[in-house]
C-alpha cells in the first residue's frame, strides 16, 4: 500500500502582483499521498485554503504531462525540483521525505517578472522566437515533401533540439539568468536542416541580439541549464548558437 498520509512544511513565495513586494508564507500540509503529483499536492493545499476563506496560491500549468512547458516552480532551490529530466508537473511526492520542508519559489529573472505568486511572465521567449526563430514558408508554396531529403542523423539531431518545451528552467537555474540554452536550441534545430539554412545568418544574429535586449544575462558555461532542462537539451546547443553567430558576422 502506498503512503497516503505524508506531511510537509511548505514555504511558498506569495506576491500580490508585479508591483508589490512579495514574501514567503508557511503552510503545513497533511494527508498527502505519495502518488500525488507535486501540482496535485498544491491543488490540495488550495482546496483547503479556499474552504477556509483564504487566498489560494497561484501557479502556472496546463498539460500536466511534461510537454506544454507551462509549469515553472523552483523547488528547494532547483528549477523543476530534484528529479532529473522531469518537469515539476511530472514530479511525484514519493520523491520527498515525509515531514520535510519544501521551499517553493517562482522563476527568478529580470526578464521573467512575477505576475502573481509563482506565476511569471515569459513573453520574452516569444519575442526571441519572433526575432527569426522560424523558416519563412508561405502557406501553399511548399515543394513536395520528399524533394527535400535530410540526413537521418541531422534530422535526429535537429529533433533533439526541437523538443525544447520553452519552460524557462534554464534561465531560472542559470546563475546569470541567461537564455542561451533556449535560444541555442531553436537556432540549432533550424540550422541543422537544409530548409533552415537560407536564413541562418540573420536568424542567429537577430535572436542573439533579442536575447540581450530582453535582459537575459551572459552565459558563463556553468552548464546548470542542461542539468535542469526537463527534456535534456544539451549545451552543445549553446556552442552551435555561438558558431552560427560567429559565422554570420565573419562571413558577411
Amino acid at each position: 500500500m502506498s503512503n497516503d498520509n505524508m506531511q510537509f512544511d511548505l514555504k511558498i513565495w506569495k506576491q500580490e502582483d508585479g508591483d508589490s513586494q512579495g514574501a514567503f508564507q508557511e503552510y503545513h500540509m497533511e494527508g498527502v499521498s505519495e502518488d500525488m503529483s507535486f501540482l496535485e499536492m498544491l491543488d490540495l493545499l488550495n482546496e483547503k485554503l479556499i474552504k477556509n476563506g483564504d487566498e489560494p496560491v497561484e501557479f502556472d500549468y496546463d498539460c500536466r504531462e511534461g510537454i506544454c512547458g507551462a509549469c515553472s516552480l523552483v523547488v528547494n532551490g532547483i528549477a523543476h525540483g530534484p528529479k532529473e529530466e522531469t518537469p515539476v508537473c511530472e514530479l511525484y511526492m514519493r520523491e520527498f521525505e515525509d515531514g520535510q520542508e519544501i521551499v517553493i519559489e517562482p522563476w527568478r529573472a529580470a526578464a521573467f517578472p512575477v505576475i502573481k505568486d509563482l506565476v511569471v511572465d515569459r513573453s520574452a521567449f516569444d519575442r526571441i522566437m519572433a526575432a527569426g526563430g522560424y523558416i519563412s514558408t508561405k502557406t501553399g508554396s511548399a515543394p513536395e515533401a520528399n524533394t527535400i531529403a535530410v540526413d537521418k542523423e541531422d534530422a535526429d539531431k535537429a529533433f533533439d533540439y526541437a523538443t525544447c518545451i520553452g519552460c524557462g528552467a534554464c534561465v531560472a537555474a542559470c546563475p546569470n539568468s541567461s537564455a542561451s540554452l533556449f535560444t541555442g536550441a531553436k537556432i540549432s534545430h533550424l540550422s541543422l536542416l537544409p530548409q533552415g539554412k537560407h536564413e541562418r545568418k540573420e536568424r542567429a544574429v537577430r535572436m542573439v541580439e533579442q536575447m540581450e535586449k530582453e535582459g537575459f544575462g551572459d552565459c558563463s558555461n556553468h552548464a546548470e541549464c542542461e542539468a535542469v532542462c526537463p527534456v535534456g537539451i544539451s549545451i552543445s546547443a549553446i556552442a552551435r548558437m555561438r558558431k552560427e553567430y560567429m559565422r554570420a558576422v565573419t562571413e558577411s
Binding site: 522560424y134 523558416i135 514558408t137 511548399a142 515533401a145 531529403a149 535530410v150 537521418k152 534530422a155
Partner: peptide, 22 residues
C-alpha cells in the same frame, strides 16, 4: 498531402528513413 509538404518546409523534424526521406 499538402499539409505534410507545408510542415516539412517549415522545418518540422518528422521521422526519416536512412535514405533521408520521410
Amino acid at each position: 498531402n499538402e499539409i505534410i509538404d507545408q510542415a516539412v518546409a517549415q522545418g518540422v523534424p518528422f521521422a526519416r528513413e536512412y535514405g533521408g526521406l520521410l
